[in-house]
């Protein structure tokens, strides 16, 4: 998204790019001077660690010390262990459920924001949704704990009207509450911008042709924002799949998700290579999911182009 030059940049003979053109006496050191620190920073503090993570999946632990090697032992041990496979299955199920729930809940909400709210309120709704994306996730999970716990707010209210305490915390329900807290704001935002980007004349044309609103939504709107739906879904999956806080506080790590496995393995001290195998496996799964999301949004584009 950020990588493409602004429209019209390439076809203007007066634009100024290195490689295709240069201004008289323009110092070629300039892009290097600006770009190199960024490049180095991201290599050392982002790419380096991830590459190193892949490297240590092949290392060995000898007498509690990590030592360089090139063995497939760790991969073999982890990938064949039932604990890992169970955690993997659990994590995929949980993240998949969150993805479906988040997308299903976010779609009508985003539709309402984009088409039903007056502009001022629409901007406010977006500003409101941006806040939780960048703040206080861990606190909000803690708040849900307070609300859902056996002595918590909901059961407190229930007790006042004479209902027995409900086991709200510690199961799939509370876990999804936590993960939706994480995913819903961003999913609604992505879909809102998707809806807002739809050409209004398209909708008006369909309505002029006598289409009912529900049919316009199904046949015009949803196909038009398919890339946004794919992005919202992959983002939700990505967040839910890698999350550590909700499984920890909403289910007490039982059963563990892959993130819990990673942290537990690391904190136990000696099994860095195995933790790395789990981490790298998670990354590979996420790459596959992102690729799938790309494919889903691209296929629409191809089909539309063919018409």
């Amino acid at each position: 998204m950020t990588g493409s030059p602004p429209p019209g940049a390439a076809d203007r003979p007066g634009s100024f790019f290195i490689g295709s053109r240069s201004t008289a006496g323009s110092p070629a050191v300039f892009p290097v001077l600006l770009g190199l620190p960024v490049l180095l920073w991201q290599l050392i503090f982002f790419a380096g660690p991830l590459v190193f993570l892949v490297v240590i999946t092949f290392w060995q632990v000898k007498s509690f010390r990590l030592s360089p090697a090139f063995v497939a032992d760790n991969w073999e041990k982890v990938l064949t262990s039932t604990a890992f496979l169970r955690a993997l299955g659990h994590t995929l199920t949980v993240a998949g459920t969150t993805t479906v729930l988040a997308t299903a809940i976010a779609l009508p909400a985003a539709y309402t924001i984009a088409f039903r709210l007056p502009p001022r309120l629409r901007d406010f709704a977006v500003a409101f949704l941006v806040v939780p994306v960048f703040s206080s996730y861990i606190l909000r999970i803690y708040a849900w704990q307070v609300v859902l716990s056996p002595q918590g707010v909901i059961n407190g209210i229930a007790g006042l009207v004479g209902i027995e305490p409900l086991p709200l915390l510690g199961g799939a329900f509370s876990l999804q509450i936590g993960l939706l807290t994480l995913t819903l704001p961003i999913a609604v935002l992505i879909l809102t911008f998707g809806f807002a980007g739809v050409d209004r004349t398209l909708i008006e044309a369909a309505e002029n042709l006598g289409c009912r609103r529900s049919r316009v939504v199904a046949h015009v709107l949803l196909p038009a924002i398919r890339p946004a739906i794919a992005l919202a879904a992959t983002t939700s999956f990505l967040l839910a799949f890698g999350d550590y806080v909700s499984p920890l506080f909403m289910t007490g790590s039982k059963p563990p998700t892959l993130s819990i496995v990673v942290v537990d393995t690391v904190k136990s001290g000696s099994q860095w290579p195995r933790a790395s195998v789990v981490g790298v496996s998670m990354l590979l799964i996420l790459v596959a999911v992102l690729a799938l999301g790309q494919l889903l949004s691209r296929r629409t584009r191809l089909r539309r182009g063919g018409r």
Partner: peptide, 26 residues
């Protein structure tokens, strides 16, 4: 743009007031 030095010529020269503009930045 070549006269102003905003593009670099691939051949020839520009003289302004008798002075060659070759290599003189914009």
């Amino acid at each position: 743009r070549l006269i102003a030095g905003l593009d670099e010529p691939t051949g020839g020269d520009i003289r302004i007031g008798g002075r060659s503009m070759r290599g003189i930045p914009a």
